[in-house]
Design a protein around this nucleic acid. Structure first.
Length: 534
RNA sequence: GGCCCCAUCGUCUAUCGGCUAGGACAGCGGCUUUUCAAGCCGUUAAGAGGGGUUCGACUCCCCUUGGGGCUACCA
């Protein structure tokens, strides 16, 4: 079998979409699994929908997500960073893109940007016309629209009526000579009958030729449409497997016909199920975020997003209930045979869970780095805190305590604002544990103050030390079951301590809070609470 | 309107004719516990409907219904 070559071919019409990310991911996984090449090609054949900067963002986003391609289009930034240590990519072999100076192309099948391959499409379109598989069409958009309207009204398939196919060679030449606007269409004969093709995820698909429109292949602006460019490029670039979204399924017969017309062997096709909104329509911006960048900005880890998206439409196979996969594990396990046919709803709740799972696995250092580099510390809560509370040491302590409680990186501090407060407000009644008297609360706080003030600053370095000392002070109810400790419970001591340190009733354990706050701040808060009581 | 694809818990899914239909998320309940979270345990919840084929259908075939996609000189 030929060496596997697959491609991800986005259009520069906006940011990378989570649906696009999944398509790219499956292509990547399939390539890596089969020791093949993953190629990035740019399909910029629609001048009208071109968005400035989209190209660079698309290419870079693929890399920040870790889907490193082997061939095709790269940004200079990539070449200098991500690929710097990859011997098979030699920056010296890079050619600067003709149309986009910020991009570079690497590989033997270039250029990899369709707007730079225009002569190629022109040449092949001409071949089609010469063989009769294609023909010139001069019809106005007005006539086309009327035709279509009429057909729908008569319950017929809406398609071009081949009017221009009846033009004589002389007429055609004449019109071409005066530069009459025209397109080139694919000539599909009803006689062709059923077009049958195999799909790696759907099995055999059959569509009758009579239902297919004479697709425009070359637009009047001289650019090819997706259909022509796609087929020509996939053939020339020796793509072996076309893995793309299900929205392409209905146009695949057109592509099959093109391969036939050129006498080329068609690649294998695999049409992936769509990603859906909660209402089951095709995933769209209207019902939530779709840009990968937005998810990263919201504090989702790229590993979690990739893992989650991999499981939308694919599973590791019979009996395997594993859900957490690293990218390397996905490569190992991936198999197109386990791709589903039905669309999958993008369920944020499950993504949240998975993200939390990934956060829990991060070391304190990694977590800090991620939070910092993702700019998640740049929030008012933290920026308005005292200098001491913004040090790396302090923030790392906060993160260690919060790690198991975070859903997203952006949640840092949100559930425990007292870590960054400079002045807590106390409700005297909240300080009392259950029905305890003010005196008992005072006693508890004084005891805590005494114990903590006896600790040296060095003792505070260890969370365990702080915890041990306070735990001892809280007493162990297990040793006073006979009531000798006058029915005191840990709560009698720990509850006032918690409220004094946090001002609220929900928080991590007082040991941990005290450890995070440090000696000085902890004592300060205890004193303030005591003052409030007196 | 035409064509194509799809159909198991609310959601993601397992099942390739033998099922007491399994797992995960969410939900609910409990344990743990000074509170919250985490963790652990438990639990609610599904094969759209109708015909076939078969000893036996969630699994195969047909129809209906439902959902989705495509139907551009967009990809």
């Amino acid at each position: 079998m030929d060496k596997v070559r697959v491609r991800f071919a986005p259009s520069p019409t906006g940011f990378l979409h989570v649906g696009g990310l999944r398509t790219a991911l499956y292509n990547y996984l399939f390539a890596k699994k089969n020791n093949g090449s993953f190629i990035l090609r740019i399909e910029d054949t629609d001048k009208n929908r071109f968005v400035e900067g989209a190209l660079e963002s698309l290419v870079d986003m693929l890399d920040t997500m870790g889907l490193i391609h082997d061939e095709g289009t790269f940004t200079n930034h990539e070449i200098q960073t991500i690929y710097a240590d990859k011997p098979r990519i030699n920056p010296a072999e890079a050619t600067v893109s003709k149309n986009y100076p910020s991009l570079v192309e690497i590989g033997e099948y270039g250029p990899y940007i369709q707007s730079e391959r225009l002569p190629l499409y022109k040449k092949y379109a001409k071949k089609l016309v010469e063989s009769g598989a294609g023909y010139y069409c001069f019809c106005s958009t007005g006539r086309l629209a009327m035709l279509r309207e009429e057909q729908i009204e008569n319950k017929l398939p809406a398609k071009y009526d081949k009017y221009c196919l009846s033009l004589s060679p002389e007429e055609i030449q004449e019109r071409l000579k005066v530069r009459a606007p025209h397109v080139i269409r694919l000539n599909i004969s009803d006689e062709r009958g059923d077009i049958v093709f195999g799909d790696l995820v759907r099995g055999q698909v059959t569509i009758h030729a009579r239902d297919i429109d004479d697709q425009v292949l070359m637009k009047s602006d001289g650019y090819p449409t997706y259909h022509l460019a796609n087929v020509v490029d996939d053939h020339l670039m020796e793509i072996t497997h076309v893995i793309r979204g299900e929205e392409w399924l209905p146009s695949t017969p057109k592509h099959i016909l093109l391969y036939e017309a050129f006498g080329w062997k068609a690649p294998a096709f695999a049409h992936l199920p769509l990603l859906l909104n909660p209402d089951k329509s095709k995933l769209s911006k209207r019902q939530g975020d779709v840009a990968v960048e937005e998810y990263l900005k919201k504090g989702y880890l790229k590993e979690a997003l990739l893992n989650f998206i991999a499981l939308l439409g694919w599973n590791p196979g019979a009996g395997n209930t594993q859900e957490i996969f690293s990218l390397a594990e996905l490569v190992q396990t991936f198999d197109l045979r386990n791709v589903h046919k039905a669309g999958a709803v993008f369920d944020l709740k499950k993504l949240d869970w998975m993200n939390a799972e990934y956060i829990k696995k991060l070391s304190p250092n990694e977590l800090y780095q991620r939070v910092k580099s993702g700019n998640f510390l740049e929030k008012d809560l933290i920026k308005e805190a005292s200098q001491e509370m913004q040090t790396e040491e302090y923030l790392k302590r906060v993160l260690l305590i919060e790690r198991d409680r975070l859903t997203k990186l952006s949640d840092v501090g949100d559930n425990n604002p007292f870590f960054f407060a400079s002045d807590l407000m106390y409700h005297a009644t909240l300080l009392n544990w259950k029905e305890n008297t003010k005196e008992m609360t005072q006693e508890a706080l004084q005891k805590a103050h005494k114990i903590l003030s006896e600790l040296s600053n060095a003792d505070w370095v260890s969370k365990e030390t702080v915890e041990k000392v306070l735990m001892r002070a809280a007493g162990d109810p297990a040793h006073s079951q006979d009531g000798s400790a006058a029915g005191r419970s840990r709560g009698d001591f720990l509850w006032p301590l918690r409220v004094a340190l946090t001002g609220v009733q929900h928080s991590p354990s007082p040991f941990e809070v005290a450890w995070v706050l440090g000696k000085e701040e902890s004592l300060k808060r205890l004193e303030k609470a005591l003052k409030k009581l007196s």
